[in-house]
């Protein structure tokens, strides 16, 4: 157990596992940040992640290339988000209820359709996936090089998305509008910018990004689709959004923290077979809660999150 601190190869291996475990959550959390910043609480991330998993498997299964998997996976995630957007933005239904409905629908629908589409070989097939690409020079850095720069395409996409998200959110007019619409939609409306349009854009993008997290799970890690393979990752992402203070970089760090604990529990489980495995399984969840409790200062969510915007309401 202690060897991860003394042996550099073990340490690199441990950190690489941590990163891999956190990537799907990072994608979902980035989607969550975008959606919540625009004022829509997205508890449906879990369902969109699962839809992304299924879409990735469908795309890769029928077209034989992981790129098709990514396209279909992101599209399915977006479809899930479309339901949330229509219910909560257009119709003003409770965002929590809409999100839970999406999770249930996706859980049933993906399980149902996977039996029809893959005809019982869902659990035995091996889909074509992404392979690690070592980035010259950067991957030569001791310990951290192979951890961060010998990954597959989707991980590099994730880096770009965090950087792009930060730039978009804090350096562009559009990002300013998004942040404003999450704090004070009436002011944005008064300025002649469409609240509905902005929120739709954010929620749909958030679904596509969460779907990408599902793609990573299928196309880079497991290479098949199994029922309920998202297994609560979308919910952990929700905690990461709060922990990261609704900031893309913060969410990334929070997810990495969960990834480290997940990797740690895998190692502990392996190293201590006499300790009941459940003690380790609950570790990431317990850490999530403790991290929420232990936040220094109070997390302040966007002021308008959870409240449907009605133009005529006073």
């Amino acid at each position: 157990m202690i060897d991860i601190l003394t042996d550099p190869t073990q340490l690199a291996d441990f950190l690489a596992t941590s990163l891999r475990l956190s990537v799907p959550i990072i994608f979902a959390a980035l989607g969550g940040v975008l959606s919540e910043r625009s004022g829509v609480f997205n508890i449906g991330l879990e369902g969109m992640l699962l839809a992304g998993c299924f879409g990735a498997a469908v795309g890769a299964y029928f077209f034989g290339t992981p790129f098709a998997g990514v396209a279909v996976g992101m599209f399915f995630g977006l479809l899930g988000a479309l339901i949330l957007a229509y219910l909560s933005i257009t119709l003003g239904v409770s965002q929590i209820v809409s999100g839970i409905a999406i999770n249930m629908l996706m859980l049933g629908l993906t399980a149902f359709l996977s039996r029809i589409v893959f005809e019982g070989q869902a659990n035995t097939m091996t889909l074509s996936g992404f392979k690690p690409i070592a980035i010259p020079l950067l991957s030569q850095i001791p310990v951290l090089g192979p951890v961060f720069f010998n990954q597959d395409l989707l991980v590099y996409v994730m880096y770009a998305m965090v950087a792009g998200g930060l730039w978009l959110m804090y350096r562009t007019r559009w990002g300013l509008n998004v942040r404003a619409v999450g704090e004070n939609p009436r002011a944005v409306d008064t300025a002649g910018i469409s609240v509905v349009g902005l929120r739709y854009a954010c929620v749909l993008t958030s679904g596509a990004i969460a779907g990408l997290g599902g793609c990573y799970l299928v196309l880079s890690q497991i290479f098949l689709f199994s029922e309920h393979m998202s297994a609560g990752k979308g919910f952990i992402a929700l905690a990461a959004v709060i922990l990261g203070r609704w900031n893309p970089l913060g969410a990334l760090l929070a997810c990495l923290l969960f990834g480290v604990f997940d990797a740690l529990q895998l190692r502990l489980q392996f190293a201590n077979p006499e300790v009941p495995y459940q003690a380790f399984v609950i570790l990431p969840y317990a850490v999530s809660i403790l991290a929420l409790v232990g936040l220094v200062g109070k997390p302040t969510p966007p002021a308008a999150v959870g409240i449907p915007y009605k133009r005529e309401a006073k």
Partner: peptide, 22 residues
């Protein structure tokens, strides 16, 4: 018909009822 279709229907019921409330 696999029982998972009922999970699907349940999700649809919530979505449709939620929409109908508007």
């Amino acid at each position: 018909v696999p029982t998972t279709v009922v999970d699907t229907i349940q999700g649809l019921v919530v979505i449709f009822v939620a929409a109908s409330l508007a």
